[in-house]
Nucleic acid binder design. Sequence first.
DNA 1: GCCGTTTTCGGCCCGACTGTTTTCAGTCG
Length: 577
Amino acid sequence: MQKRIALKNKDIIRSFRLAVSLLELHDENPFKIRTYSNAVANLERLEIPLAGLRVIDLEHLEGVGKSIASKIFELNQTGSFPELDTLLAATPPGVVDMLRIKGIGPKKIRTIWKELGVETAEDLLQACENNQIAALKGFGTKTQETIKNALLYSESSKGKVHYATVEKYTEDFVSFLQTGLHTDLVAVAGEVRRRMEIIENLLFIAATDQPGQVSVLLQERPELQQEPVISGPFVWRGRETQTGVPVEIKIVSPQTFYNALFLHTGAPAHLQATYHDTSTLLQLANQQIFASEEEIYRKAGMAYIEPEMREGTQELTLARENRLPLLVTNADLHGILHNHTTYSDGANTLTTMATYCRDQGYEYVDICDHSKAAFYANGLVEHRVKEQHREIEQLNRELAPFKIFKGIEADILADGSLDYNDEVLSSFDFVVASIHSNLKMEEKKATERLLGAIQNPFTTILGHPTGRLLLQREGYPIDYKTIIDACAFYKVIIEINANPWRLDLDWRWVEYALVQGVLLSINPDAHSTAGYHDMHYGVQVARKGGLTKEMTFNAWPLEKVANYFEDRRIKAITEVK
DNA sequence: GCCGTTTTCGGCCCGACTGTTTTCAGTCG
């Protein structure tokens, strides 16, 4: 009997996306490919789980007919469907991997594969080095460079993961060791404790008087593969096999636990900081046993520094002068800005997005669907803006005192203008301006384009300033100081996009923004109710950068936010008259 | 492969941009 697998909608969508790419790669009927793409677009907007549906129910879904319905059903039964299996069997795995390369699509990959016989990333890099790619018809030196850069970027991302990928794992693993070793003295240290956006290794500190016990316990963790050559009696080293991330477990005596935790949390620049003019924190923690991290800082004559700030930048001076900021917390947030609904490319309806947010205890939610230039994301043409506004007004009457603000994520066009006229822009409570197209830009071009949007009186918030996707693509280069200075001058709020793939504005620029008096808003860019939970990651990087409650726009209460939006909107209308 | 009929087969088909061409295919969002 076949095992029934309960797939999530996104897993099903992922399989169909792969099928689309493979069909294109194998030069199948373009209309068939379009149909699959349409089905994917419709499935993305579905609020109900596909897993429980019968074939006959599936056939009634928009864009889904007999064939696709049975494929969805089959996916749920077996995890695949015959056509996908056939396509995969006809494609070398290395060629399937190439589909992930940004800047080239299935057609170009087909040419490379068929003309040059290239079937792996290594061969592809070699072909770039040998100038074979540039020589292909329809290719040139620029395409070859694009491919080479993408391969090198992907190579440099190997064995690294987003913070969000390992957070839950590290928490569970700490509990596991605490239970097994009968102690509370187990903690994650290193990059994870510092809440770095990209994690290159997992480091744990475990206190026990019986070091041998750790190896015994780890036999229950098949996902952890030891590398005996680099391990020892007081350190276990190896890898977490699902992600490939290196893992290190330091085994210490209970007395030295806090010293070890301290020494393995701060970045080198933090530990090398001097206190009382001569000694470093590193020396201090190596010389004397402490019963807590607070005690270490006290001894050094500094205020306690939160782990996420221990990077060796401005936090040491602030701690010495007892001027450390009181960092924003999840509990400080009153509302959630920048969210998508089924009006554009979100998975949940306006009502669902709003009531969910209300039920989580927030005072307000801001809906920012895509604007009309984002055709691919079903961006809102003018009459649909009006339609959405009517629905928001109706819901606001029903849900009061909870408030839905009418926002939009307006595309910043190539010339820095926004893609609606002033009249339409003035109909929103506020505007998030973001770049989504033509991401290949020089720093000068990108900075000027952003400046254009910042100078638009209707722009309230600058969305994900660099467009980066961590571990997947670098953002366009920008002159941070110029952008932040302009936001200060034109009173534009900067978003800290909380999606773990973005975390953009980068936390390294938070302090500079605060010094210039720029407000920051921690926004999830949620495309479903689940997306709201990304706020947590945004708060972490914001804290890392030193953000306070006062300077976090969405930590403001409803009335203050409403007044801010209205004042700004009226000022903009007056300005363009 | 789906849809919508003039019900059983024809039509479906974003816009901007890049990099390659010398008029447009491929890619992206």
